[in-house]
Amino acid sequence: MMPVCCFGELLLRFSPVVQGEWIRQAAMPVFVGGAELNVATALAKWHVPVSYSTVLPQNSLADDIISYVVDKGIDPSGIVRFGQRVGTYYLPQGTDLKNAGVIYDRAHSAFSELAPGKVDWDTILQDTSWLHISAISPALNANVAATCKELLAVASAKGITISIDLNYRARLWQYGKTPVEIMPELVDYCTVVMGNIWAANTLLGIPVDPQIHIREDKNELLAHALATSEAIQERFPRCKVVANTFRFDMLPAGLHYYTTLHVNGQQYVSSEYFTDSVVDRVGSGDCFMAGLIYGLYRQEAPQSVIEFATAAAFGKLQQMGDATNQSITDITTRLQSATF
């Protein structure tokens, strides 16, 4: 089978224990990640041929990282070497990338130095059947956004299936452009769009009810997901598949999770999952995206696709680190105990 290529910035996540305990312990866990690498890692674990494309500097730290990528079963041939540093971010243990706890340290990273014309995308995409990117990359700066468009244009011309994760990071998008000025022209190339009704509003300008999250009525949310999916497909004719995720915190602790998939004019709804505690929220959405690609790549039935992706994403919430290490058996076993 022809491989999937995941493109995006590799990041090192420093995960300090809260309230200064990391200082007293003189230790801070480090995880190799980045949204697109997390997707690639899961796909490799599930025996889907996958390559990874990013930019890393020519130094020993980057050499170690590439060895790590290879050890995960990922083809590193799409990694380009230039620049001076690897991007990093700090996220205190137990917090979420979407909240104010994240501290980015990725300015002037090698990846941020991308610009149109610097990479031979024809070579990177040789023998590729599927390209995956996310909305994080074009959020970095104008040159990276233009490079994303260049990459997508080449992939589209080759007839490659293109998926995008509409992951919004409020701490990014600091270069004078709003997401709705950049993202629509990128999504215009995409076959598969994953996100949620709020991300579709922020990144694409698709209308959203501003009070719907307060009511948290499932039937209302599912109807809104359908309307959002139809609006995306109407606006972006290349888009054939739209997936929406719903993840709500429960008081005093815990989480409620379910998702939808819209394809061929029909919306499919996943099982519901509940948990009283979460080990690590980072990478759950990436695991869902990997599950989505896994099922669609294998041309499985839509309900099977959404069930597998949802079970995988929920399982990642109980694993420390950026990428999942769940096996296919782990996920299918969880499916058997899901709430339908």
Rank of each mutant, 00 (worst) to 15 (best):
D280H: 08
A253W: 06
I331E: 05
R334I: 04
I331W: 03
Y268P: 03
G295I: 00
Q319L: 04
T324G: 15
S304Q: 13
S277Y: 13
L255R: 14
A290I: 01
V282Q: 11
A253L: 04
D330A: 06
R281L: 09
Y257H: 15
S304P: 00
F288R: 06
L317I: 08
S304G: 09
T259A: 15
A312H: 12
T310W: 13
T324W: 04
F314G: 11
T324C: 09
L255M: 14
L292T: 10
Y297D: 11
Q326F: 05
S277P: 04
A301H: 03
F288P: 11
T259P: 11
A323C: 12
V263N: 00
L261R: 05
N264Y: 00
Q299R: 14
V269C: 06
G265M: 00
L296K: 08
V305C: 13
I328N: 02
A309V: 02
V263P: 02
Q318G: 06
Y258F: 15
H262C: 03
M289Y: 10
G295V: 02
V279M: 10
L292E: 13
M320Y: 13
V279A: 15
D330T: 07
N325C: 02
T259L: 03
G254Y: 10
E272Q: 14
H262F: 15
E272A: 13
G291L: 03
Q318P: 01
M320V: 11
L317M: 08
Y268M: 00
Y268S: 07
V279I: 15
I293W: 14
A301I: 00
T310Q: 08
T259K: 04
Y257Q: 11
F314H: 15
F308L: 12
Q266D: 04
A311H: 02
A301P: 03
V278K: 12
G291P: 09
F314S: 05
I331D: 08
G315L: 13
G321V: 04
E272T: 12
S270D: 06
H262Q: 05
D330K: 05
S277Q: 12
N264I: 00
M320P: 02
S284G: 15
H256L: 10
G283F: 08
E300S: 04
L335P: 01
Q303G: 01
Q267K: 11
S270Q: 08
Q318T: 06
L292A: 11
G265P: 01
F274H: 15
T329F: 09
H262W: 12
A312R: 04
G254P: 14
T260K: 03
L255Q: 15
L261N: 07
G295F: 02
I331Y: 07
N264S: 11
A312G: 06
P302C: 03
R298G: 03
V305R: 05
E300H: 12
Y258T: 09
R281E: 12
T332W: 00
E272V: 07
N325Q: 09
